[in-house]
Computed example of a mutant assay.
Amino acid sequence: MTRLDAAGRPIDRAPGSRWGDDLAVPIGLGTNTFGRTTDAAASHRVLDEFAEAGGVLVDTADTYSDGASEVILGDWMRARNNRAQVVVTTKCGNLPPFDGLSASQVAAAAEESLRRLGTNYIDLYFAHYQDDETPIEETAEAFDALVRVGKIRAIGLSNFTADAVCEWIDTANANGLAVPVALQPHYSLVHRKPFETELAPLASEAGLAVLPYRALGGGFLSGKYRTEADTEDRARGGGVRPLITPEGLGLLDTIDAIAQEHNVTAAAIALAWLMQSPTVTAPLVSATSGAQLDDLLAAPAVTLDEAQITRLDIASDGLT
């Protein structure tokens, strides 16, 4: 785990490297199902298997199951006595009564997350959603204050426009504040814009780590949703139903063909495509069982050739 100074700058990091470049397994475990569709015992089993496979980055948020996800993760770290071996990312700004990114809300939300997680620091703390009602300077100062007292080690931005990311970085640089080191955008083969057109060039220029969420398109890219009947009575059915089109199914056919060439699952191919993007540090994925997790953890061993990447690019072009 890379150490940071009081301003959130990495110590002993090689020039030109990004936050997260030293992750042993370049995949993050998303915990949005913990406490909702996955109970504590099942969640702990998934966490155990993720850790046993070498995974270290676990992503949560105060809004996930209204804080229950953070509690489950905190209980697991305490039971396993492994806090130092886990890279914890969590988020604030979207859970009442601490919604928004004013200085007081950010400070209060951080205290609540620390309490639920049972830790005295958060490795990477995200502003979950852009808050146009609060000046970015106020929010940047609030996050910087958390860095300076050691409650968070680095700052990330999720669901921010490119203009807002630039404004935060410029404000931080102009005022000697801790600068954001990571983005968490919505990005996958079925949702390529606005990340590719607006955020990817910025991430590359600013050296920002990129941790995409919904990396499997809400489960669509795993291939389990091919008809409207497949979406019935499924928690994510409504979100993937619009993707069941000739174009969407054509993309699944392309993924399936490439998966057969590598003898892996469709999900592993969709993740491999993300992981081979030069701007992506680690996609975030959710799993409710060890079997699901095994499929996902096969992705880092897959190397797509240029022709396969082009086939995927063409098949997914125009879906978003």
Results as ranks from 00 to 15, higher is better:
residue 239 G to D: 07
residue 104 S to V: 13
residue 21 D to R: 08
residue 88 V to Y: 03
residue 232 E to R: 14
residue 109 A to I: 10
residue 198 E to V: 02
residue 230 D to E: 09
residue 225 Y to R: 00
residue 24 A to W: 05
residue 63 T to D: 09
residue 268 A to H: 07
residue 64 Y to Q: 11
residue 114 L to G: 09
residue 221 L to K: 10
residue 177 L to R: 10
residue 126 F to V: 12
residue 162 A to I: 12
residue 244 I to F: 08
residue 144 D to C: 01
residue 37 T to D: 06
residue 49 E to Y: 04
residue 302 V to L: 10
residue 102 S to Q: 10
residue 4 L to R: 02
residue 320 T to W: 09
residue 208 L to S: 03
residue 144 D to M: 02
residue 10 P to T: 12
residue 234 R to Q: 03
residue 73 L to I: 13
residue 174 A to R: 11
residue 93 G to F: 02
residue 206 A to E: 08
residue 311 R to H: 12
residue 246 P to H: 04
residue 194 P to Y: 03
residue 318 G to K: 07
residue 152 I to D: 01
residue 225 Y to F: 15
residue 264 V to Y: 04
residue 278 P to V: 13
residue 240 V to Y: 01
residue 197 T to L: 05
residue 130 Q to W: 07
residue 288 T to K: 09
residue 286 S to G: 15
residue 250 G to V: 08
residue 76 W to N: 00
residue 220 F to W: 13
residue 266 A to E: 03
residue 132 D to E: 15
residue 180 P to I: 11
residue 71 V to Y: 04
residue 232 E to K: 12
residue 284 L to C: 09
residue 199 L to E: 13
residue 87 V to K: 00
residue 96 P to V: 04
residue 53 A to F: 03
residue 12 D to V: 06
residue 137 E to N: 11
residue 304 L to I: 09
residue 191 H to G: 06
residue 131 D to G: 04
residue 86 V to N: 01
residue 74 G to E: 07
residue 71 V to K: 04
residue 103 A to E: 12
residue 60 T to N: 02
residue 237 G to Q: 10
residue 52 E to W: 12
residue 221 L to E: 02
residue 51 A to V: 15
residue 311 R to D: 13
residue 52 E to V: 14
residue 237 G to C: 10
residue 292 Q to W: 14
residue 181 V to A: 05
residue 227 T to A: 11
residue 297 L to P: 00
residue 268 A to S: 12
residue 161 T to V: 11
residue 134 T to E: 10
residue 266 A to C: 11
residue 4 L to F: 12
residue 155 I to N: 08
residue 178 A to I: 04
residue 3 R to C: 10
residue 5 D to W: 14
residue 4 L to T: 06
residue 275 M to H: 05
residue 223 G to L: 10
residue 204 S to K: 14
residue 272 A to V: 09
residue 38 T to V: 15
residue 89 T to P: 07
residue 135 P to A: 12
residue 38 T to H: 04
residue 101 L to I: 07
residue 164 A to M: 05
residue 107 A to E: 13
residue 38 T to R: 00
residue 81 N to P: 00
residue 183 L to Y: 00
residue 58 V to S: 00
residue 211 L to G: 04
residue 79 A to L: 11
residue 109 A to L: 13
residue 210 V to A: 06
residue 160 F to K: 02
residue 200 A to W: 12
residue 215 A to S: 15
residue 22 D to T: 08
residue 261 E to H: 08
residue 247 E to Q: 12
residue 229 A to I: 06
residue 287 A to Q: 01
residue 192 R to F: 04
residue 105 Q to M: 05
residue 6 A to C: 08
residue 36 R to I: 01
residue 227 T to I: 14
residue 18 R to N: 06
residue 112 E to N: 15
residue 211 L to K: 02
residue 19 W to V: 07
residue 253 D to K: 13
residue 141 E to I: 14
residue 82 N to Y: 09
residue 95 L to Y: 10
residue 30 G to I: 06
residue 184 Q to L: 12
residue 14 A to N: 11
residue 68 A to G: 05
residue 30 G to Q: 05
residue 65 S to H: 08
residue 18 R to T: 03
residue 124 L to Y: 03
residue 37 T to N: 05
residue 205 E to L: 15
residue 222 S to L: 08
residue 276 Q to K: 14
residue 191 H to F: 09
residue 111 E to W: 01
residue 123 D to N: 15
residue 66 D to I: 13
residue 59 D to S: 02
residue 21 D to E: 15
residue 266 A to Y: 01
residue 16 G to F: 01
residue 142 A to D: 02
residue 166 C to T: 08
residue 155 I to K: 13
